[in-house]
Write a protein that binds this DNA or RNA. Structure first.
Lengths: 252, 252
DNA sequence: CGCAGGGTTGAGCGCTCTCAATATAAGTGG
DNA sequence: CCACTTATATTGAGAGCGCTCAACCCTGCG
């Protein structure tokens, strides 16, 4: 429940104690409006600057935390791209989310152990937010308390949206929803809403959407044939966003 | 974000202000170890006794809150049984959970509006926990703060489990998982683990599990034929819990 | 250049859905 | 209390969506 006892080798410690190369503060971070500090005023921002205990580089394929690890911190994506996944007793694997800049991972571990594994899909960097600090600071800063609760609530709401997708949508509706969701998140981060690079494999998309990788591949091809998108391996260009919305609207 | 502005007619107000018929405190509640106060010591318990702003009766079929309602409180099931569900723009409906004594509903609304509708499946009663009070008290009572965070985290973890179920399991695995989950929750509340009354319809079970009601019905019959359970409408008796576990283990 | 991981595409199957009829339970009003 | 209505559950027959199995292709990299 306290700050991580074991520090990863690539960890850059924060100033209060150890030296570090780069500025590690929320107030100087261009992702702050997408992240935990969203909505805080300048004074509050300065108060929580020390909440970023450290930054940590995560090479492609490495895990930030794994199922069963004792919970210590929430992790914010500073750069790069992640998936979270879980595996049940019988070996069934499920990707529970994809995470990009400013998004938070590991919240389901609060009060116990992480219930999933967070794996980087490209060379990435995370901010380590020790729970003990968040806990402490959110007692004194009502804005942070609210923001933390709001972030947790949004994660629950997001999961419910995925449950709707998995429980009620057909395969093509799932993929269309997925693409539009990615598009929306990319545009908020200043990237093109219509052209992006998928960091995950067809298998990972399939796991997230409750489909087999072949089905995902076929759907990509089918969307391309219909003029909705252009796909070439991991590169995607959305050509007809309205058409994608129509895929959802066309209920039988 | 403050205490509910509109009070439901059947609401029994708490002592600080208005009279009421029954004791409305956590310390006198036999569900406290399953609910928000779990793990608090006696002193802390007394401090949060006033957190139950009111109790409210919810006749079968009524909603405690609905999608889009401004968030004001978290609701704890005092007695009875609930479902939460959401409907998307195209009319797809998804049951996101079933809730029994001591379980909390509405947390996904924190900081905004409820994202689902909570409907009672039998005449029930809920405790109204105004968020403003929770917020205030959890600043002064670290145990409550932790418990709140833990409850939110468990809800996220639960949702991930459902995502695994919906994304990776076959129909019969889903129903077996569902029955074992119900059994576990009933036994914690002092009911029989092997014999219980389903409060929800086949359609609601189906929606929750991502199946059609006919499929659910067929699976019940099939489980019965295999000697795993006895079903008669809403009455279920588990005859072979090990067999149900085998349904899950038998991966092809 | 060869290899490995990832992606595409085809053929056929089977699980779950759709449509439909019937049964049973639970209300509802006379 | 009973006839009628409505909601819920069961079961069957057939169709189709997505899966399985398999072959082949593409791309990056040692």
């Amino acid at each position: 429940m306290n700050a991580p006892t074991q520090l990863h080798p690539s960890t850059q410690l924060h100033a209060n104690g150890a030296p570090r190369k780069f500025e590690v503060t929320c107030s100087s971070c261009n992702l702050r409006e997408l992240c935990l500090p969203a909505g805080l005023d300048e004074e509050q921002l300065r108060m929580i600057d020390n909440i970023v205990y450290a930054r940590r580089r995560v090479p492609r394929g490495d895990a930030v935390f794994q199922t069963g690890d004792g919970f210590g911190a929430i992790y914010a994506v500073r750069s790069g791209f992640f998936k979270t996944s879980l595996v049940d007793a019988e070996g069934r694997e499920q990707v529970t989310g994809f995470f990009m800049g400013g998004e938070l991972m590991g919240m389901e571990g609060i009060g116990g152990a992480y219930q999933s594994t967070a794996t980087s899909l490209e060379d990435s960097e995370v901010c380590v937010l020790p729970y003990s600090l968040i806990e402490q600071l959110s007692r004194d800063i009502p804005g942070l308390q609210r923001q933390l609760h709001a972030v947790l609530a949004r994660e629950i709401a997001r999961d419910h949206g995925v449950m709707l997708l998995l429980g009620s949508m057909r395969a093509e509706e799932r993929l269309a929803t997925f693409l539009m969701n990615l598009s929306r998140r990319f545009v908020r981060r200043g990237y093109s809403p219509t052209e992006f690079h998928l960091r995950m494999t067809r298998e990972e998309i399939g796991s997230y959407l409750g489909l087999k990788l072949e089905t995902v591949s076929r759907l990509f091809s089918s969307f391309q044939k219909d003029g909705l998108i252009e796909v070439q391996q991991k590169h995607v260009r959305i050509r007809d966003i309205g058409g994608l919305e129509q895929v959802l609207a066309a209920r039988r």
